[in-house]
Amino acid sequence: MRYFLSRLGLFALTAWAAITLNFLLPRLMPGSPADAAIARLAQNGPVDPATRAAIEAQLGVPTGGLLAQYWDYLGNVLTLDFGVSYTFFPASVASLVGSALPFTLVLVGLVTVAAFVIGTLIGVLAAWRRGSALDALPTLSGSFLAAFPYFWTALLLLFFLGYTFQLFPTSGAYSPYTTPGLNGPFLADAVAHAVLPAVTILLTSLGGWILGMRNAMIGTLGDDYVTFAEANGLRSRTVALRYAARNAILPNLTGFGLALGGVVGGSLLVERVFAYPGVGYLLFNAVTNQDFPLMQALFLMITLSVLVANFVVDTLYGILDPRTRR
């Protein structure tokens, strides 16, 4: 419980730091993003004072006390008020993020967890059969796949499976003729659209998990408790899973938390390639249109999601390792 509380405290502190970083970023940059943003917004029509104030609070203007701005900004973050987007004027940033987030969370979240589980299992097998073909094949292809840029894997799959063989839809999350909701045709269509991005993320992130688990488990296989378990004649399944793998999963889990940021970053590029209407694609649109309010809000959401995921991983670690309970 103490471990859980200390992790919770650390999470809160890190989240606060990330929110603050998000506040400071535009203010540390040369030039005035806020002025640029207001000028851009003015192209769509007159900017009302409330909107102007919101943008200034978010992006910073040379006038006004920093502390007061910070206070306003914190209030805005808590009420999820990120102003309006000017790419998709007059839609509010919050509504845009809200509609993109579910796609990314479901796609990236599910696939990442699946990749971790599959990769870990393959890693266990590779370490247990060290030196055999069952080890060499996943290890070698894993280290090669891990070096693939996410967007390139995506482009190749898109080109071959999407365009050349036309097995899967090439862009978007669902076809325009379906009605989003919990109905059969829509879900089937959404799954078909998700296959290529999902396979990309799975393939590219799998290698890292395989290698991580394999190396961790080769370490634990050399530990004395494994030798002793063998000396006691335990079944090899028990030795491999309950002794070697069970301990190797712990450092691997920590690695998972730390590598998560990279996977999420890569997934953003994947969304861009498949024009998948998630957070990454939206971020790409915001960046190309210099839509700073949208960009800021998206960055904050992405960071907070990764932090939450890390917190979950930490909690899981606490459950799996009895040594943290003391």
Binding site: D224, Y225, F228, R246, P322
Partner: peptide
């Protein structure tokens, strides 16, 4: 190394 001969998570 009897100290390390036991599985720390069991």
């Amino acid at each position: 190394s009897g100290m390390n001969a036991l599985n720390p998570v069991r």
